[in-house]
């Protein structure tokens, strides 16, 4: 069982690194969206600093969302998903490996890029650790919840916009908590409590979402 988990993780890693452009795309998207805002609202540094927690979170959320459309698509089209469903190994384990790979190569990469963009928006350096922690706890939730939507829409020809419609409302709590933590830090309020809240949200999603993803994949394959 754990064997299949590691093998799938290795397989996903291989696939990812044989198409390195796809690794970079969400990161470039993230940077461009962040760059749009100073251009749209003006370069006034006080304003940018105030809205930077929200901007960083919304941009990261959209970058994850865009990358999710392809999460199961190629596996669906080339018949891999059918093979997983009929195999004797639990689908949930494979789903976890798949989502972990997505988080490592999309979510974690975004987290690592975020301090740079935060500095460009004028977020004070002492709040960078809070930003990193909030994204580190929040991006797995984005990957997991997004994978539920990706699993349900994978069989549809134009799943992209529908995926956004299904998933964005579900992202609201993590968006509120994630950007709220940084705002609280900016206002000099304690953040530990909120971070613990985020951690429990992450654990809850990690426990429940894989089952919903697996069920969604079974439905899409049966279509």
């Amino acid at each position: 069982m754990s064997n299949v988990f590691t093998l799938l993780l290795v397989r996903e890693t291989r696939l990812m690194f044989r198409r390195p452009a796809e690794l970079v795309n969400p990161l470039v998207f993230f940077s461009i969206v962040i760059a749009l805002f100073p251009l749209a609202v003006g370069p006034e540094s006080q304003l940018l600093q105030t809205i930077s927690p929200g901007l960083l979170w919304v941009a990261a959320l959209l970058a994850v969302l865009l990358s999710l459309d392809g999460l199961f698509r190629s596996d669906f089209e080339d018949g891999s998903l059918e093979q997983w469903v009929v195999s004797p190994h639990p689908l949930v384990v494979m789903v976890l490996a798949k989502v972990l790979a997505h988080w490592l190569y999309c979510g974690l990469a975004l987290v690592m890029l975020s301090p740079l963009l935060a500095l460009m928006l004028g977020l004070p350096t002492q709040h960078i650790p809070t930003l990193l922690l909030s994204l580190l706890l929040g991006t797995p939730v984005l990957s997991l919840l997004g994978a539920v939507g990706a699993a349900l829409t994978v069989g549809l020809k134009r799943g992209g916009i529908l995926l956004a419609l299904l998933i964005l409302p579900l992202y609201i709590p993590v968006l509120i908590l994630g950007s709220g933590v940084i705002q609280a830090a900016l206002q000099g309020l304690p953040t530990t409590g909120y971070l613990l809240w985020m951690a429990s949200l992450t654990m809850l999603t990690l426990t429940l979402a894989p089952f919903a993803i697996a069920a969604g994949l079974r439905i899409s394959v049966a279509e």
Binding site: R11, L15, R18, R19, E77, D78, G79, S80, E82, Q83
Partner: peptide, 11 residues
């Protein structure tokens, strides 16, 4: 073995 057999072009 379905119509699409689960073969990845990149592997």
């Amino acid at each position: 073995l379905g119509h699409a057999a689960g073969i990845k072009g990149l592997l």
